[in-house]
Design a protein around this nucleic acid. Structure first.
Lengths: 115, 115
DNA sequence: ATAATACGAGTCATATAGTACCCACTAACA
DNA sequence: TGTTAGTGGGTACTATATGACTCGTATTAT
């Protein structure tokens, strides 16, 4: 939802683009299977409008809608790979920089290191 | 959301598991970067509780929350790969089965083919 | 061309997601 | 050991996502 803070229009462009891309992907996958919006929405137990919003890249749809859509497409594994620790190169970099589990705020932040 | 139809508890297990996995992945990525819930939620412009729900695998959070979290983690590309057409083997199979773009309901459905 | 279906979009009612604020527990650091 | 920060969970409130229904248009197949 995100109301006062990040409104739907205030999303970072990369975030908005990612949602739109996933929506387009789902639409393509549905058409490949020869399913109409009504058919797929019916098996998802949501309304056609909700599925249409997901495919249109509406950031305001719920995670459950995305997950159920992927379930119908037999593509939930794709979702499990999102932010997977083994491919988080940025995180692994940070992890190597500091051994303590919690950084104290007064210490020299990692960002100040330059090399 | 999904109210009357698929309630939060009625999600297919694979869908629920996928959401939980993504949540765990995000939590791991956050801790690797040494960020507290408050810090990351603050930069996402959402409350700590909302981010915590995302990490806990609550299916009822919005897509925007996921996308903004991935944006903070510089991982939006992972989301773009979800349901990517080039890796949709099931869809490519269906596509090869029928050339007409829309299947008429009275025709023999694809599902009835056995081989 | 024509009939049938798919689709986008609008309205209304209602469940609920997200916020702001709160307290309690836990883990880490001195 | 004491102290501070991180975290989980509760409550009340408000904006809104979704369902249900409808109409109009576009697209398809015959």
């Amino acid at each position: 939802m995100i109301r006062n803070s990040i409104s739907t229009e205030g999303l970072p462009s990369s975030a908005r683009q990612a949602i739109e891309t996933v929506g387009n992907n789902i639409r393509t996958a549905r058409k490949r299977r020869g399913w109409s919006l009504d058919e797929m929405a019916g098996s998802m137990l949501v309304t056609r409008k909700t599925l249409s919003r997901l495919e249109s890249g509406d950031p305001a749809v719920g995670l459950s809608v995305l997950a159920v859509a992927l379930h119908c497409l037999i593509m939930t594994d794709d979702l499990k790979k999102v932010a997977a620790p083994e491919s988080d190169s940025v995180g692994l970099f940070y992890e190597q920089q500091r051994l303590p589990r919690r950084v104290r705020k007064k210490q020299t932040p990692v960002d100040d290191l330059d090399f």
